[in-house]
Write a protein that binds this DNA or RNA. Structure first.
Length: 110
DNA sequence: CGTGTGACTCGGT
DNA sequence: GACCGAGCCACAC
């Protein structure tokens, strides 16, 4: 009999779920850093893992992954291009100068 | 289980 | 500010 194997593309790791949870609670007009989210998950050095989870984020419209930027204030990366990320943030009310964001004013406190 | 990769971060140059 | 190297974490193969 044929084994009905469905691609396990449906399972979200607990880690990723937590990342989405934190990202989802970022209000519009504010931004957060990968490291900050990582720290919320008790993994201060897991900024990379956080980026990975967001990059694979299956809840794109549900999770405002575009509100997550680098700790330096740079946009970081975006699946559709940093340009789109920049535009989106500006629409939310975030002021971006030279592809950089003022973390002092837009970094949300978790 | 080892290896490679990535939307990161920090420190030095 | 830009480039490089090292460190840390999770995932895919």
């Amino acid at each position: 009999m044929a084994k009905i194997i469905n691609k396990p593309v449906n399972r979200i790791s607990s880690f990723a779920a937590q990342v989405y949870r934190i990202t989802e609670r970022i209000p519009a007009g504010k931004v957060g850093t990968y490291g900050q989210i990582a720290k919320c998950l008790s993994i201060t050095k897991g900024a990379r893992a956080v980026g990975n989870a967001l990059h694979r984020n299956p809840f794109t419209p549900k999770v405002p992954c575009h509100r997550v930027i680098q700790s330096d204030g740079h946009l970081g990366g975006f699946a559709s291009g940093a340009q789109a990320k920049k535009t989106l943030l500006e629409k939310e009310g975030v002021i971006i100068i030279n592809n950089k964001i003022d973390l002092r004013k837009f970094q949300v406190k978790l």
